[in-house]
């Protein structure tokens, strides 16, 4: 993760307010935030990317999971200032450049992997990172990938199916090579071929 010092430090524009830059879903963003502003609040309320949800504010439910430099991170446990300079992917950035659903998103639709949809963005980002690491999970490994996210609606049955289905869709689309590239480049969609 890019630290402040690597970026040459964060500018304190006025007392208690800091200017940070983020690359969110491929687009550069400049934001002025108080030091205590959570990354989740910054994404949701400053950048109005409300797909990232907050379910517990203590890092247990996983609804707020985003990818920071390709790694899945609970954005409610990270201060926005510490993400300065980072590449962030939220649920809004998972779709393919042409607007079609990503394999993971499509798999959730195919398998009825969501009901109320509130926890779903955190599952989608978590599984996206999980499949980048393990493109061919067994059912047990699929359960492991989602083992840190809470869902109150689905009993997880169809989410596990969706993980397996997403892996299948990725294989079908011949995405293995692309997955390798995106992992290398930090797993943002625009880093793909």
């Amino acid at each position: 993760m890019a630290s402040a010092s690597e970026q040459g430090g964060i500018t304190q524009s006025s007392p208690g307010l800091f200017d940070i830059s983020l690359i969110v879903n491929g687009a550069p963003q400049a934001v002025r935030v108080p030091a205590r502003r959570l990354l989740s609040d910054c994404l949701r309320h400053d950048l109005r990317l409300t797909g990232t949800h907050v379910g517990c504010e203590h890092g247990v439910c996983g609804a707020c999971t985003v990818l920071v430099d390709g790694v899945s991170v609970r954005s409610c446990l990270m201060l926005a200032v510490t993400a300065d300079g980072a590449r962030i992917t939220t649920v809004e950035g998972l779709t393919e450049p042409d607007g079609t659903l990503s394999a993971v998103q499509q798999a959730f639709a195919d398998c009825h992997g969501l009901q109320c949809g509130f926890c779903t963005p955190g599952f989608l980002t978590t599984i996206t990172a999980g499949l980048a690491e393990n493109p061919d999970p067994s059912p047990d490994q699929a359960r492991e990938i989602i083992g840190g996210n809470l869902c109150r609606c689905t009993g997880y049955q169809n989410i596990v199916q969706a993980v397996l289905r997403a892996a299948e869709l990725r294989r079908e689309a011949g995405l293995k090579r692309e997955a390798g590239l995106t992992r290398e480049a930090g797993l943002t969609p625009e880093a793909g071929p």
């Binding site: 797909g51 959730f108 639709a109």
Partner: peptide, 11 residues
């Protein structure tokens, strides 16, 4: 689902 999967839900 499509809307919710894209992060376009409005809670």
């Amino acid at each position: 689902d499509d809307r919710l999967l894209r992060g376009n839900g409005a809670y």
